[in-house]
Design a protein around this nucleic acid. Structure first.
Lengths: 206, 206
DNA sequence: GGCTAATGTGAGAAATTGCTCACATCAAAC
DNA sequence: GTTTGATGTGAGCAATTTCTCACATTAGCC
């Protein structure tokens, strides 16, 4: 019984070039299908088909269908988390207004780019909601955002900052997701970011 | 070929007391299962099991699994829509601040009560998103809300009111759903309503 | 070339699920 | 009590989907 193995661990680690290509093809195919047709359409046979490999190969590297999806989610959470982290650290010293606007702008980009994971998958497969939820709420990000707000504490009139952070996080993400879901009439990226920033800044400082 | 029949129409209208009880049992079972375990867990056999009726009886009254879900959705949209309509009309003449707060309070109640439909189902089954989306965006409600805002137009500094309505709708619903999904720490109903109202009012008037 | 381990294949086994149908039971009217 | 239509039953069909396994092919090494 090997350690560090769970029900999502790969069965076999690819060692040759062509095996790596196979694994990549499978992940790409799964991503594409889920993106375009949704989770239900992503049957293992269909994924193998689109990837151009046999169903047997698929099951050599992934123990189950869920393992494929888990791999997609993990990848997205890692990448998006890393980018957001860097972004936040670079913005540590800007003004409250600028910081808020740029963070919202950044969140819009992230949630558009990883729409598959953070919106489609997280909604259709409740199992994965927590995993993808990690991104916005994980401790490191939380602390970084918290630090940013603290640097502008005197401008902020809200008493309970932690509570305000929770409210803001979900106000913002809620509006962004709705904007991306519906194709909002009379509203473009710039305008959305402007309006939501306004709301957040006014909520905090007026 | 009968008119007024579609793929969701019941096959048979219950005529005796016990048949009505059967239908109710099926709907209740479906609601419970979806609420607690999600849409995927709601197989027809499982629904019949929980309802305490045979799978045959289920298919006597519902032509398909989707018809059961459609019945749940329709019921919720009708009830919630009607209640919201009445609520809005009663609040036509209150102040901007009071109106906004009470509407948010009302939305919180509605989305908690009909959480099954407006949150779980709408997310897991893309097919039903539009139907449940009707509730908040349907024309009548839209016009009613619009009228309310217009009565306080001089207090409102935002130029493009229609755009602001879109932003506000999704800010509010986003925050409410997040609050209901996560069991938000250090935040109760009253506090949430207060904070979100604050944000909306300040966004509109400052 | 010959050997070995890694990789690839796809028919089909096993499991799941929506749904049917031939039949059994019950309620109401006479 | 008999009849008749409404209601209830559940084995199992048909279609789909996940996953296995015996076998074939390929890459790397001597």
């Amino acid at each position: 019984m090997k350690a560090n193995q769970n029900q999502f661990s790969p069965r076999k680690v690819p060692q040759q070039e062509r095996a790596l290509f196979t694994v990549e093809s499978i992940l790409t195919a799964a991503r594409t299908i889920i993106q375009q047709k949704g989770y239900e359409a992503a049957t293992t046979n269909h994924i193998a088909d689109v990837a151009g490999v046999s169903i047997g190969s698929l099951y050599q590297y992934f123990p189950s269908k869920e393992a494929i999806v888990a791999a997609l989610v993990e990848d997205a959470v890692l990448r998006a988390g890393e980018r957001t982290r860097k972004f936040l650290i670079e913005r540590m010293n800007v003004s409250l207004e600028t910081g808020v606007r740029e963070i919202i702008q950044h969140l819009l980009e992230i949630r558009r780019e990883y729409g598959l994971i953070f919106r489609r998958l997280a909604r259709e497969v409740p199992r994965f909601r927590n995993i993808s939820g990690q991104l916005t709420t994980e401790k490191y990000l939380y602390n970084t955002v918290h630090t940013f707000y603290l640097q502008h504490r005197e401008e902020i009139l809200v008493e309970d900052l932690e509570m305000a952070m929770f409210v803001i996080e979900h106000l913002v993400v809620g509006a962004i997701d709705a904007y991306l879901d519906n194709d909002a009439p009379r509203l473009d990226d710039e305008e959305l970011v402007q309006q939501v920033s306004n709301a957040v800044i006014k909520y905090l400082t007026k």
